[in-house]
Nucleic acid binder design. Sequence first.
DNA 1: CGAGGTGTGGAAAACGCTTTCCACATGCTA
DNA 2: TAGCATGTGGAAAGCGTTTTCCACACCTCG
Lengths: 343, 343
Amino acid sequence: MPRGSGKVNLIDVARRAGVSLATASRVLNGSTRSVGDELRERVRRAASELDYSPSAPAQAMARGGTDVVGLVVPDIADPYFSTIAASIVRAAEPHGLIINLASTERRHEREAEYVASMRRQQARGIVLVGSRTTDRRQLEELRAEIAAYTATGGRVSAVGQHKLPTDTVVVENRAAARSLAERLLGLGYRHFAVLAGPTDLLTARDRFTGFREGLRAGGVDLASQDVVHGAFTRDGGYAAASELLDRGSGASCVFAVNDVMAVGALSAFRDRGIRLPEELAVAGFDDIASLRDVWPSLTTVRIPLERLGEQALDFLLDEPAQQTRIRRFSGEVVVRASTPGSG
Amino acid sequence: MPRGSGKVNLIDVARRAGVSLATASRVLNGSTRSVGDELRERVRRAASELDYSPSAPAQAMARGGTDVVGLVVPDIADPYFSTIAASIVRAAEPHGLIINLASTERRHEREAEYVASMRRQQARGIVLVGSRTTDRRQLEELRAEIAAYTATGGRVSAVGQHKLPTDTVVVENRAAARSLAERLLGLGYRHFAVLAGPTDLLTARDRFTGFREGLRAGGVDLASQDVVHGAFTRDGGYAAASELLDRGSGASCVFAVNDVMAVGALSAFRDRGIRLPEELAVAGFDDIASLRDVWPSLTTVRIPLERLGEQALDFLLDEPAQQTRIRRFSGEVVVRASTPGSG
DNA sequence: CGAGGTGTGGAAAACGCTTTCCACATGCTA
DNA sequence: TAGCATGTGGAAAGCGTTTTCCACACCTCG
């Protein structure tokens, strides 16, 4: 194995096998065109002897397309997003796709920038996760940015290279939050508080709205002082929970619109000497696997995180589809120790 | 803004600006060569009017190199790896680097495969995280696979495009584990058990070895029945903890070689009705941020996860460096509620 | 035995850029 | 005024592939 041989290209392989460039190419990329057994074997051997590795950029040029899929997330360290990312990576592998990862660090206004970067890479498609871009105007800009293709602000958006509309994969947050509210009412709670997350994030809004609807349906109202907004993070949850306490909320059950916040709230409550779950019940949303071991274990809404990524990729790989497609996944309430009931 | 104009290339821009291809290129990539103000402006306008976006593959061809950095991790959904990944992504951004993410799904034998894939992409460098490849023989193979460049089995390895040796970034696991042991002895514990993780993972072995050394130095031995191996995951921790109980270990303090396992163990113990931390103390390693809210909060070893990624990238971006470089980070013991002491 | 496949190999164009190499004005200096 | 740097623009040669388009045998059928 010739070490330090630098870059070896197809020409080198062809020369060593004593064939033309065309023949070498045909052998190595399993073209439809048949090549004689003799030459085929010679090329194969030459390639392996030279430790030949085709250049992806060159192939991209010649073929007019790459095997790259862009993945843009708000924060890859957040377990919610890393779980989705994992599912996308897993789904991409069998198709031989390469994943280009970018993180906006929750500066959602930079989404367009990263989408543009993926476009430069000639990505076959782009999966936008947890986009905060829900505003019509911003959407238009994003659309302009990625030229003939489109993006939207759903939970997970797939921007295909060949379709104008953007397919989106969403979780039925509102309906699930409603179910959660009903379930908690069923457990006997009557006085609720909500750690509602950021106001401009559709996902957070939907969960909040659904939850309130569920309570209303059960004849329970949510006082505005029992609702506190904040960042969609662990620290955001901690801060919001503290704020709630400072306001002197008398709630017996607190709903955090995602698990990460719920877990931060758990710590805030504990730091204030509140005994959990006896004195205060807590519920979350997402059912993040790596958070299942907190105590008290979180009552939450399980959503099929692994499926979200798969579905987004399926959309990307599917043919054109002139229609904007949308796939909705429903959530399932899971009651655990953090809401012992009869609050 | 001409929508649906398909691919617009430099030639289109040049034509519209009424200049040559060369001039257009010079203007747009801020070449050293100066271009007249008049033409410069015309090209700029043409490019923006056409919404021109250069093709990265084409640039890679012409420039003979990409801005891609390959990142290979065992499992992006594991908070340990996602934290490191986040730090790499963050460090890459200011340099305009694109991250190609691949996950081996903990099938470490496939590392070489992914490294090869990154090579095809003409990656400027490769960062191998949590490689299990410690064996000399495997190392040689990997080295062959990535041609003139090298990889090693340290914690985080950086495979530069231009250097033969592989730089590596490691955590001083052994020393830190020793400190942890000493600290726990100081808290009064005398009978320990260890959830030691996989036997073939250097990181796990070092932590185990260091811990045992620390105990020995304090005159305490570890009975072989108090050591159980298993997967480096949450479920691995749960299983190992259960096994420990089944064996009837009388340990008063359990050390899990990483936080993820520790957290699984917490649940296993709780499921068996053991009161934590009163009846049994638990310690972990890593100080994973998203796991800081578990109860009882974990005594663990904090390691500068964010720095690991940064350092790996620094190595990659640095010039050749014929010597293999190695950067060691030390860990810091953090005592929390899971080891109340005087066990 | 000639016309028309068919199977196989090579030459060369194309993909979209960057970057040498040239050419041509200008404005200086001697 | 000849002789040169210097500044600016274009033509064209790559970069490493894929993929037409041709060419040539060799077969088969009428």
